[in-house]
Design a binder for these strands. Structure first.
Length: 497
RNA sequence: GUCCCCAUAGUCUAGCGGUCAGGACGCGGCCCUUUCAAGGCUGAGACACGAGUUCGAUUCUCGUUGGGGGCACCA
């Protein structure tokens, strides 16, 4: 990025036609990281020119997702900026100005062909041997005087770019793909302004990027073929062409473009399922970029300092949720207990905690962290894994666990439970993990049982399941009477004593 | 159909003419252990194919095959 001494300005430009999806999020992350690493400016622009599909609600969802991901923008909605406004629908006069400029320079001409005849021609061409190869330039041949008369007579028309006849191949140096070249003769005279006077996507993008002083256009691969068209517009407008950097696609596990049937595709859904924004950012950053090929846990501080376009891959990447899970677990294990409580709050409530209780006993909730941190990868596992802490005196026995640990062991399990019960009920023993555990361990010796034959029945009785966080660390966090009550209930329910 | 792009294990990737082809997820084994995890050690697993260029190709060129994207008065 040395050929331009000017400061870096990049933008992420989503259309509010849906939620922020995974692919868009990665594009946003790369733009953000590139701006941060270059000391540049990161701009957020909303491309809402499609009134049919754009909604205010989607705009809000996108802004919320950006904030959740921690991708702060320097210019854009809510923060403003000198290159605004940042909604395309509010920049209509800039497109009108650009059109006037193109008319004046003769780089554009009116086209009176109706959508219907165009569609018919295209259908016909597609059915024939050669296939469709773009607009046939019928109206380009119309005499300017004649065209002017028809416009004044009120005939509906669009404006098309007059692609130079003698234009050589359109070549550019993509920051990711390297040298890319398109033959100019396959470019048709694209529509730049529609019948209703609104700009088409390619035209609006060029106007905005130019007016906003964008130096690097970092966007999805699906725009690679649009790039030569946009370059033609830059040229017609006499504007400098920015550096382009195209990003490969993110595919689903079946190698097909990521879509609804692959499950969660929006950032919002990942938040709801209990992924940490730092983990998602880290994971997405690595989908097409590497720091050194070795490092996988990359904090955003490193990302924002070390990101570089020359380490971006050209190959499409498959989104592998298994690895995201692992990475989320890594980030959970690095949290501070109080931080974890904050993040876990909605799921703790689902597990049975009262909001007020979380506020009143922060230390107790923070104590859950060491019990669960290395046993969870997503926050939505919390209800299933920690609800036993909120059962009070009742227990909810898992059938499979009962069969395997209590019924199958029969007398031995009953014996262990009955022997452990007085220890747990003994008020002279401090209600703490270590002394309780110590006493139960020595019980194993006196009963001549292996530890698991004593611990597992207690675990099932108290936690309801043969799989749980550490037993006495959990018991310590509960009330003695409740624990005893659960053992009694189990004894009665399973063994009838 | 046409134009453009891509190609290292199941997945994410390192590599930029000579490497035991490296790392991570996942998978197998062992250790630890009251369950499950986490952690440590360890094992299996890849250069799509075919021609060139070269003393030597994963790496450079061409072709084949496979995959992806564009070709709208959508963005």
């Amino acid at each position: 990025m040395s050929e331009t001494a000017q400061p870096v300005r990049v933008r992420f430009a989503p259309s509010p036609t849906g939620k922020l999806h995974i692919g868009g999020a990665r594009t946003a992350i790369y733009n953000w990281a590139f701006a941060r690493s270059q000391g540049g400016t990161f701009i957020l622009r909303i491309e809402d020119t499609d009134p049919e599909r754009s909604t205010e609600e989607n705009t809000q969802v996108i802004l919320r997702a950006m904030k959740w991901l921690g991708l702060d923008w320097d210019e854009g909605p809510e923060v403003g900026g000198t290159a605004g406004p940042y909604f395309q629908t509010q920049r209509m006069e800039t497109y009108a100005d650009a059109l006037e400029k193109l008319k004046a320079s003769g780089n554009v001409y009116p086209c009176f062909c109706t959508k219907e005849t165009l569609d018919a021609k295209r259908a016909e061409a597609e059915a024939s041997e050669g296939g469709y190869s773009g607009y046939d330039r019928t109206c380009r041949a119309i005499d300017p005087q004649e065209a002017q008369r028809r416009i004044e007579a009120g005939e509906p028309h669009v404006w098309r770019l007059k692609v130079p006849e003698d234009h050589g191949p359109i070549a550019f140096e993509d920051a990711v793909y390297g040298a890319v070249s398109f033959p100019a003769d396959v470019m048709d005279d694209m529509i730049v302004v529609r019948t209703d006077g609104s700009p088409t996507y390619n035209f609006a993008v060029v106007c905005d990027d130019a007016n906003m002083g964008i130096t690097h256009v970092i966007r999805g691969d699906d725009h690679l073929s649009n790039t030569p068209r946009q370059i033609l517009i830059y040229e017609a407008l006499g504007l400098p062409v920015p550096t382009f950097a195209h990003l490969s696609m993110i595919l689903g596990s079946d190698g097909k473009k990521l879509s609804k049937r692959h499950g969660a595709t929006s950032v919002e859904e990942y938040a709801e399922r209990g992924y940490l924004p730092d983990a998602l950012v880290n994971f997405l950053a690595l989908l097409g970029w590497s720091l050194d090929g070795e490092t996988t846990i990359i904090p955003r501080s490193v990302l924002s300092a070390q990101f570089s376009l020359d380490r971006v891959t050209k190959k499409d990447a498959v989104f592998d949720e298994t690895k995201l899970d692992w990475m989320n677990g890594c980030y959970i294990r690095e949290m501070q207990p109080t931080q974890w409580v904050d993040a876990a709050r909605p799921w703790l409530v689902k597990a049975g905690a009262a909001e007020s209780d979380i506020d009143e006993r922060p230390a107790w909730y923070a104590a859950l962290y060491p019990l669960i941190a290395e046993r969870m990868v997503r926050f939505d596992e919390i209800p299933a894994k920690l609800s036993y802490l909120f059962w009070g005196p009742r227990t909810h026995l898992d059938e499979k666990s009962v069969n395997k640990v209590l019924l199958k062991e029969g007398a031995r399990a009953q014996e262990a439970l009955m022997a452990a019960r007085p220890i747990i009920a003994d008020a002279s023993i401090p209600w703490e993990c270590d002394p309780l555990q110590e006493r139960v361990r020595s019980l194993c010796d006196s009963l001549d049982m292996k530890a698991k034959f004593v611990f597992q029945p207690i675990r099932v009785a108290v936690c309801g399941n043969m799989v749980s966080p550490p037993l006495f660390e959990s018991i310590e966090l509960m009330e003695r009477d409740d624990v005893v009550a659960r053992i009694d209930a189990t004894l009665e329910e399973i063994f009838g004593v």
